[in-house]
Structures are given as C-alpha cells and as structure tokens.
C-alpha cells in the first residue's frame, strides 16, 4: 500500500494527530482501500458514465434578500470584527 500517499491525504484533509493516532488512522484507511479494491473486478467496458450526466443547476440568481440571515450567521462566528468573520493573518 502506498504509505506516503495516505499520509499525504491525511495532510490534505487538514488533520494533525499525535503519532499514535496518525498511525491508527493510516491503518484504518489502508483497510478501507483494501475493502474497495474489488472495484477493479467489475466489468465497466459497456458503460459510459460521462454520457449520463444531467445538468440540474438552477438559474444563477440570488434568491435570498441581501442581509436576510446576516445577524443569525455572524452572531455564531467564533471570532467576529464588526460585520466580518475574523481570522488569523492569511498573508505573511
């Protein structure tokens, strides 16, 4: 199993664990990948998934009045500055 690629997926998922927890997570994901390995045995030579896509998007228009939920939403921000969500510095 591709050890480094699972570690990379853990990193990309934005998880940071202790060494022991990281190892347990790694082992479980290996098990999941072994469980789904059977996928390769399915004959899909006659199916074309891409042909079956249907566009179900609605028109790209705003359906909510501006500011309708502003206070309910901002009021739940862990850190807030006036009418903005407050985060740590993004650019260094």
């Amino acid at each position: 199993m591709e050890q480094d690629d699972i570690s990379r997926a853990i990193h990309l998922s934005l998880f940071e664990k202790s060494d022991a927890e990281q190892k347990a997570l790694h082992t479980d994901v290996e098990k999941i990948l072994s469980f789904v390995a059977d996928i390769q045995s399915i004959d899909t030579s006659t199916t074309a998934e891409t042909a079956a896509k249907t566009n179900i998007f609605r028109d790209d228009v705003v359906t909510v009045p501006p500011g309708a939920f502003r206070e309910q939403i901002l009021g739940q921000a862990p850190n807030r500055f006036k009418d903005w969500f407050l985060s740590k510095k993004i650019l260094s």
Partner: peptide, 28 residues
C-alpha cells in the same frame, strides 16, 4: 477515516483507478 479515504480516491494518480471506475460501475 472517510474524509481521508475520500481525499485519497480523488487525488491525482488515483482518481481514474478509484473514483472514475466507481462512477462507471455505478452506472452499470
């Protein structure tokens, strides 16, 4: 576990072997 497994099957190098194959199998 599922977020990591999902990130893995969608990542470059594995997308075709896992995700695209699974979508084709779903259609079958």
């Amino acid at each position: 576990r599922r977020i990591v497994a999902g990130t893995y099957v969608l990542s470059a190098g594995y997308y075709d072997a896992y995700y695209r194959k699974a979508m084709d199998a779903r259609r079958a």
